[in-house]
């Protein structure tokens, strides 16, 4: 029997509610909880905290591993994390030309494009061009630093805080920070509207 998924799911939920097995409010609560779950969003929270708290930002730039651990994050491929900060005339981007090294504790597992020979070989060779192709156009006088993670040190980019976000909560700010911005192939998103 072919199903319309949305109808089928509604059928399922309504039956389970009527049988007293679940309450819809409980389902709502679970969804909210899991949409905050760990993964690369850890990095977004680190960035949001750095944007909101100047003292935290200083600690993060001085000792990334320790500051990230303050938020409870750490583990394999995160023995030593260095955070590099973007500025109006300075843009950082991270690669592992030799394989696929990536800061798992804050960014999860790397995307396929990060691990492919095209990105790995070209970002060190012609970074401004590759970034432009990926949607990030940088004027010629902006310094680009490509961090090649050839040892066990892992790098996280601290993107610039978008304009128009004054007074935002950390949770709201974290929503603007993508994995791509923390690798350095994109900016943090601008506020909508």
């Amino acid at each position: 029997m072919e199903h319309a998924d949305d109808l089928r799911t509604e059928a399922l939920e309504s039956l389970l509610v009527e049988k007293g097995l679940v309450a819809s409010e409980a389902v709502d609560a679970i969804l909210r909880h899991y949409e905050q779950e760990v993964g690369p969003l850890n990095g977004a929270r680190v960035v949001a905290r750095a944007w909101s708290d100047a003292a935290y930002r200083r600690r993060l730039l001085a000792d990334g591993t320790a500051a990230i651990a303050e938020l409870g994050y750490g583990g394999p491929q995160g023995e030593h994390i260095v955070v590099v900060e973007n500025a109006p005339r300075l843009h950082n981007v991270v690669v592992c030309t030799l394989c696929s090294c990536y800061p798992w504790p804050v960014l999860g597992l790397p995307p396929a494009w990060y691990k492919d020979p095209a990105y790995r070989s070209r970002i060190v060779r012609e970074p401004r061009q590759v970034l432009a192709e990926m949607g990030l156009a940088l004027p010629g006088d902006v310094e680009i630093r490509v961090w090649d993670s050839s040892a066990e040190i892992r790098y996280l980019v601290l993107p610039e805080r978008p304009a128009g976000t004054e007074g935002w909560s950390e949770e709201r700010l974290a929503g603007l920070v993508s994995r791509d911005a923390m690798i350095g192939v994109a900016r943090a998103a601008a506020p909508r509207g």
Partner: peptide, 15 residues
């Protein structure tokens, strides 16, 4: 990469 390379690009390599 030679003199034609981007004058404002740098690679920071862990050695």
């Amino acid at each position: 990469w030679g003199e034609d390379a981007d004058p404002a690009a740098w690679v920071h390599l862990d050695c």
